[in-house]
């Protein structure tokens, strides 16, 4: 009976709430085997497989294959976390009543969103460390362009996370799981993420306008050529605006 239940209510300072929530969501994401698979394992396999098997795959670029692949795999890593992982996690949060309960906690909705962004940043940082490490081990020689790459990661995260939340906020959890994984696979194969848009022939002019193509191209502009691909960045910003507007209109918390 030592527990003192006398009321002393107050919310923690918002930054502390957001940090706690970001840490919590990142931990949950990394604890989940399937999410870890698409966040880290698949990008590394694609990178190593692409570089080691370039001859057999008939990949031939003006630059060494590893220099072309590392930016693309970084784009893939962003897509996997900001879109697929976020959509699946959020879909199941709705299903299990977590989002509903958090709606009655001191964490405001803006804090919840900020926490999710924080979790994405934490996981993406881990992914970048792993992919860059493996890339350097494979002999990657980046052309600089770090500012352009950072901008691409930020805008790519914004675009993909708004689309991920759009899917998660409308569909049931199982449907979200299926759609998020399917879209990931389709974009991995045909979305000009890892392979440059030029590899797709005439189709490449179309996929450049997809968030996947725009992110991949912006990363390659930055890290292969050392330039800033403003058109691609604008395309990503456009997707982010459209995705956020649609999500704000359609997201259902329960």
């Amino acid at each position: 009976m030592t527990l003192d239940l006398s009321p002393r209510p107050a919310a923690a300072p918002l930054p502390r709430q957001v940090l706690a929530h970001a840490g919590m969501e990142a931990r949950l994401m990394l604890r989940n085997g399937e999410q870890l698979l698409i966040a880290v394992v698949i990008p590394v396999i694609v990178l190593v497989g692409g570089v080691r098997g370039a001859d057999r795959l008939g990949l031939d670029y003006d630059h060494p294959v590893v220099d072309v692949f590392v930016p693309g795999v970084l784009a893939l890593a962003v897509m996997s976390t900001a879109f697929t992982s976020l959509a699946i996690a959020t879909g199941f949060e709705r299903r299990y009543g977590v989002i509903k309960w958090l709606g009655a906690s001191p964490l405001p909705r803006t804090g919840l969103l900020a926490g999710k962004v924080g979790a994405l940043v934490l996981v993406e940082t881990l992914q970048v460390v792993v992919v860059v490490g493996v890339g350097l081990a494979l002999g990657w020689d980046p052309a600089g362009g770090w500012a352009g790459a950072l901008l691409a990661v930020v805008l790519g995260t914004a675009a993909f996370s708004s689309l991920g939340l759009l899917v998660a906020g409308v569909l049931r959890a199982e449907a979200t799981l299926a759609v998020a994984n399917l879209v990931y696979l389709l974009l991995l194969a045909g979305g000009a993420v890892v392979l440059p848009a030029s590899a797709y022939g005439g189709f490449g002019d179309l996929v450049r306008w997809l968030p996947s193509g725009a992110l991949g191209e912006a990363m390659r502009d930055a890290l292969v050529d050392g330039t800033v691909g403003w058109t691609h960045l604008l395309v990503l910003a456009g997707w982010a605006v459209v995705g956020a507007a649609l999500t704000a209109r359609t997201f259902r918390w329960e």
Partner: peptide, 26 residues
């Protein structure tokens, strides 16, 4: 607030969840 039906992530540990909620309060 205690809702009917669940209110936690499926993969979160019981005390970890409680600790998280505690961290949202002063």
């Amino acid at each position: 607030v205690m809702l009917q039906g669940g209110q936690a992530w499926s993969g979160v540990r019981a005390m970890e969840m409680l600790r998280h909620v505690a961290s949202l309060h002063a």
